[in-house]
């Protein structure tokens, strides 16, 4: 009941407001084209009729919410999931490279963090490169990676996954460095009094202390992975995936398709972030975390 009052009501109110705003903008943005079409057809519709038409164009400048919803619903639930028109199919293609890239990125990020925390030399030499790597725009790198891999005969999942890796290792590395360094001096002193070895301190203190940091950074990393996978599909002329769907939509001015592909992308993003969050909560609970 409290949850209802505290969360659901404000969220639905906000959402309803946004939808209304969206309709207003759809009318405003589609009106010039509609007026043009009406003039050419020699029609002079009444105001209410005109509004209805602006919200029912085949290739609107800004599709109305119900158009996107219908398209999304049809392409998600009424098509065979193996069909090229199914959003589930495209989402799955993107999701699989996102997950592969995210797994690589998480492992790579953790390895880099462990290296940085354990070897001072790495901290000095590696960190600037890692930060520099993230300043290169992904849009510049993605085609190069894809082309280079295609040249050696590797296409499909792997090059896309690598771009996800490229985007996702960074938050994990930064988060894990912070997490592995999070134990206070007091705890390190305690381990010192036991004459604990570096690896004992690592496994019994640093690793468990870093778990909350790991999951927080994995949430960022999984979203970045998805962006990476979608971006990787854009320059490659990929035939499948949410990115390919966006590109095809843009090519044929299928604005409604673009929007429903965007919705599909957001749904996948929300799902992934939620999943990581839930996994994090389960792990922390099993480590004696205080229920919030």
């Amino acid at each position: 009941m409290d949850r209802f009052r505290d969360k659901i009501i404000p969220v639905t109110t906000l959402l309803a407001g946004l939808v209304v705003l969206w309709y207003v903008f759809a009318v405003i943005m589609n009106a010039p084209v509609q007026r043009d079409m009406d003039r050419r057809a020699g029609e002079d519709p009444r105001f209410s009729e005109f509004i209805g038409k602006t919200l029912a164009q085949a290739k609107p400048t800004l599709p109305a919410p119900h158009q996107v919803a219908t398209n999304f619903f049809e392409n998600t639930f009424t098509r065979k999931i193996t069909s090229n028109r199914s959003l589930v199919y495209h989402a799955w293609v993107t999701l699989s490279s996102t997950l592969l890239g995210f797994a690589f990125g998480t492992v790579l990020g953790i390895l880099i963090a462990v290296g940085i925390v354990h070897f001072i030399a790495l901290d000095r030499s590696l960190m600037p490169w890692i930060i520099a790597s993230q300043t290169i725009p992904i849009l510049a790198i993605a085609p190069m990676v894809v082309v280079v891999f295609a040249a050696i005969g590797v296409t499909g999942l792997l090059p896309k996954a690598l771009i996800s890796t490229y985007l996702s290792f960074f938050p994990v590395a930064v988060g894990m460095v912070k997490g592995l360094r999070s134990p206070e001096i007091l705890y390190l002193d305690l381990m010192h009094t036991y004459n604990a070895s570096a690896s004992q301190t690592f496994w019994k203190l640093r690793v468990p202390a870093s778990v909350p940091y790991l999951f927080a950074s994995m949430k960022v990393a999984v979203a970045a992975s998805l962006v990476g996978a979608i971006v990787a599909e854009l320059p490659t002329g990929a035939v499948a995936g949410i990115g390919a769907k966006l590109l095809a939509g843009a090519y044929y001015s299928q604005t409604i398709d673009i929007w429903s592909a965007l919705v599909a992308g957001s749904v996948v993003a929300v799902l992934l972030v939620t999943l990581v969050g839930v996994a994090g909560r389960i792990v922390e609970r099993s480590m004696g975390g205080r229920p919030a």
Partner: peptide
């Protein structure tokens, strides 16, 4: 391991149960 040190703060590991906290030096 000639001494045991008790700090002003209890410094228990929050992810370990009480028995596992006591077990920590023994494991090490």
């Amino acid at each position: 391991r000639a001494y045991g040190y008790v700090f002003q703060a209890a410094a228990l590991f929050p992810w370990r149960t009480i028995e596992n906290n006591v077990a920590l030096p023994l494991e090490i």
